[in-house]
Design a protein around this nucleic acid. Structure first.
Length: 541
RNA sequence: GAACCGGUAGCUCAGCCGGUAGAGCAUUCGACUUUUAAUCGAAUGGUCGUGGGUUCGAGUCCCACCCGGUUCACCA
C-alpha cells in the first residue's frame, strides 16, 4: 500500500527517547527507508528546483529544513548523508519569464531545453547555467552543504541510462498509471517519454507510437511534417515528463528522502507509484505547507506579494529566518514583515535556553541547536531582545546606531559594539525596521498655540545651552520652560513633547533624551515639528 | 470533484507519550520618577468550533459535521 502521505505516517511507538523536534521524526523515516533498501550507501536527501525561476525564500526553507533532517539523522544513526540539489535544467522553456532581458531571443527558443538556450543575461553559456549558478551562489551564501546536480549532465552522461531502459520495460504500466489522472485533452497525447527532436532540439510532447525496450528507443511522428522518427531514450536524446522524471530520478539515484510543498501532494503520490513500478520504494518525505501573505493569500512569485528573502534579511539576521522556517513546517504561516521581530526573539530565547541546558536530548530539541548546525555558537546571541531594541529605537527616535547605542549603554553599561558585535548587528536592523515600519505609522500631533510658543522657547534655550551640560541640567531647562509657560498640569508639557516631537504618548525623560540625542539635533527636531505643522491646523486628532 | 492545514484569553499563538488550561502583546492597578521609555510586581480575561464515541479522566485519541484558508485537477 502506502501511498499514505509522509506526514500522516503512523507515529513510531519507541520515540520516547527521541528529542522532541520534528527533524528527528523525519530522521526516523529516513532511517527506516535506509534500512529497508539496505546497503552501506549514505542516506541520500534531495531537493529539487524548477530551472525557470530564481531561488527564493521557499528555496531557503526547503534546503534549511532538509539540512536539519540530515543533522538529526546523522546524530540519530551515526551514519553519513548526502544532500543533492537537483536542477531539472533539461526541462523545456514553455513561456518566456517576464523578469528577464532579451525577451525576443528567448521567444525564439521556446520548447528547447533550458540548457540549450543562450543566457539572456549574457553571462553564462546557457540560461540554465545562469540559473544554476544563481542557485549555487544562493546556497553558498548561507553555508549550506550540498552537491549540485544538473539533469542535463545526468542525462547526457548516461547516468540515467539504466533507469531509462527500465522505464521502457514498464512503459505501458506507467502510462496506465498516469493516464487516469489526466484531463481528457492531455490523455490523447500523453507519454512519459519526451524525445528530443534530432533536427530542432525541441523537447517533443507527442504521442509515442511504439516502444522498443531492447533497443531503448521510442517511435514518434513529427506533428509538423509527419516524419517518423525512432529515437533513443539514452544519453540525453530524450527526457522524461516530469512526474515520471521525478520517479525515475528517485529510482536511479536511490533517493531516501525528499520533502515538498503541499501543492505537489498528488505528484508525490503518482511519482511514488511509478517509482514502485520501476522497482524501488519511493523516498520518505514531508509535505510542508505553503506560505501565506499578509492577507492570508498564497505567495506567488509572479505577483510579488509576501516577502522576499532579501527583504527579510534587510530587517533581521538569517538566524531569524531559519527560526521561522523551523517552526511548524506543516502549518500554513503568514510570511510578512510583522513576523520578523517575533521570529528573531524566539531565536534569541532559544540560544539562551540552549546555553542553560545540560541535557543533550533537550538540547537537540532546541531550534537553535539545528540552526547552528549542532553546535551552539554563543556569539550569535544577544542579552537584549529585538523587541526591546525596537522599542528603544522608537522612544529614542534613533536615526543612527551611535544614538541607539548611547541609549542602550544607559540601559546596560556592559554592552558595546566591540564586545557584542551581534547586538550591534541587531541594532542596525532595529534601526532599519524602525525607520521603515514603525516611524511611518506614527502620528505627530500639531502643537496648540501656547505649546508652539513654549516649544520655540525651548529650542532657543537648548541652542544657547552649554553642550557639556549633564542630562539632569538639561532636564532642568526643559522643566523651567514648562513652568515659565504655565502649562497645566506640568506633566502635560512632557506629554506635548512626546506627542508633537516623537509621535507617541510616552517617552524617556526629556532631558536624558535631549542629551543623548544631541542638543543641536533636538533643536532641529523641534523646529522641524514647528515648521511641519505651521500651515495645517486641522490635523489635530 | 479531490486533497491539505487551521478553528484554544481582545490580538498572535504554545500546549510533548490523554491527568482539573499557558506565554507574549493589549487592558487595568501598583512600584520607581522634578515625567509616563526601557525595568519590576499584580490583576482581569477561555463552556479549548459543534455533536457523538473510547476512557476512571480528552484541548490532547477515534468518527461525523460546521466554519475559515489553501492547493491540485494546464505546466512544472
Amino acid at each position: 500500500m502506502s501511498d499514505t502521505l509522509p506526514n500522516t505516517a503512523s507515529r513510531p511507538s519507541d520515540a520516547s527517547d527521541l528529542p522532541k523536534a520534528w527533524p528527528f521524526e523525519e530522521a526516523r523515516k529516513v532511517a527506516s527507508h535506509v534500512a529497508e533498501r539496505g546497503g552501506d550507501a549514505p542516506a541520500l536527501l534531495e531537493t529539487g528546483y524548477g530551472p525557470s525561476g530564481l531561488p527564493h525564500i521557499g528555496t531557503f526553507g526547503e534546503v534549511a529544513r532538509t539540512t536539519w533532517v540530515r543533522l538529526a539523522y546523522e546524530k540519530l544513526t551515526g551514519r553519513k548523508t548526502r544532500l543533492l540539489a537537483f536542477s531539472d535544467d533539461m526541462d523545456a522553456l514553455r513561456k518566456v519569464p517576464g523578469n528577464v532581458p532579451n525577451q525576443e531571443m528567448l521567444a525564439q527558443h521556446l520548447g528547447l531545453p533550458l540548457s540549450r538556450i543562450p543566457d539572456p543575461f549574457g553571462r553564462f553559456e546557457s540560461f540554465s547555467a545562469h540559473n544554476n549558478a544563481m542557485l549555487c551562489e544562493f546556497l553558498d551564501r548561507f553555508g549550506f552543504e550540498y552537491e549540485f546536480a544538473s539533469a542535463t549532465d545526468y542525462y547526457t552522461s548516461g547516468r540515467f541510462d539504466d533507469a531509462l531502459r527500465r522505464m521502457l520495460e514498464v512503459h505501458d504500466e506507467v502510462v496506465a498509471t498516469i493516464v487516469p489522472t489526466l484531463g481528457a485533452e492531455r490523455r490523447a497525447t500523453y507519454s512519459p517519454v519526451l524525445p528530443i527532436h534530432p533536427r530542432t532540439g525541441q523537447v517533443m510532447q507527442v504521442p509515442v507510437l511504439g516502444v522498443n525496450p531492447d533497443e531503448a528507443t521510442v517511435q514518434w511522428k513529427d506533428p509538423e511534417d509527419g516524419t517518423l522518427y525512432e529515437t533513443s531514450v539514452l544519453g540525453g536524446h530524450a527526457k522524461m515528463q516530469w512526474k515520471a522524471d521525478w520517479a525515475m530520478r528517485w529510482y536511479a539515484l536511490g533517493v531516501d528522502y525528499e520533502m515538498s510543498g503541499k501543492d505537489l501532494i498528488d505528484s508525490v503520490k503518482l511519482s511514488s507509484k511509478i517509482c514502485r513500478i520501476l522497482g524501488k520504494a519511493p523516498p520518505a518525505g514531508l509535505t510542508y505547507e505553503l506560505f501565506l501573505d499578509q492577507n492570508a493569500q498564497k505567495i506567488s512569485k509572479s505577483k510579488g506579494n509576501g516577502l522576499s528573502i532579501e527583504e527579510w534579511l534587510h530587517y533581521a539576521p538569517p538566524e531569524s529566518l531559519a527560526q521561522y522556517m523551523f517552526n511548524q513546517p506543516t502549518r500554513a504561516k503568514r510570511l510578512f514583515f510583522d513576523v520578523i521581530p517575533r521570529a528573531m526573539d524566539e531565536y534569541l530565547a532559544n540560544v539562551d535556553k540552549a546555553g542553560a541546558t545540560p541535557d543533550e536530548t533537550v538540547l537537540r530539541a532546541n531550534p537553535a541547536w539545528f540552526i547552528h548546525g549542532g553546535a551552539i555558537d554563543p556569539a550569535l546571541s544577544s542579552p537584549v531582545s529585538f523587541t526591546a531594541l525596537l522599542n528603544l529605537a522608537s522612544v529614542a527616535n534613533a536615526e543612527s546606531s551611535e544614538t541607539l547605542w548611547k541609549f542602550l549603554r544607559r540601559y546596560d553599561p556592559t554592552l558595546s559594539p566591540e564586545t557584542h558585535p551581534y547586538v550591534d548587528r541587531l541594532v542596525g536592523h532595529a534601526l532599519v525596521y524602525f525607520k521603515e515600519f514603525v516611524r511611518p505609522a506614527k502620528t505627530f500631533r500639531a502643537p496648540s498655540d501656547a505649546e508652539r510658543v513654549a516649544l520655540q522657547d525651548l529650542a532657543d534655550a537648548l541652542r544657547q545651552a552649554d553642550p557639556s551640560l549633564s542630562p539632569v541640567e538639561v532636564q532642568d531647562i526643559v522643566f523651567e520652560i514648562g513652568k515659565k509657560h504655565q502649562i497645566q498640569p506640568l506633566r502635560a508639557w512632557f506629554g506635548c513633547l512626546y506627542e508633537v516631537l516623537l509621535g507617541q504618548t510616552e517617552g524617556p525623560r526629556f532631558g536624558i533624551f535631549a542629551s543623548l540625542f544631541g542638543l543641536p539635533e533636538t533643536v532641529a527636531l523641534i523646529e522641524g515639528a514647528l515648521a511641519r505643522d505651521a500651515i495645517p491646523a486641522d490635523r489635530q486628532t
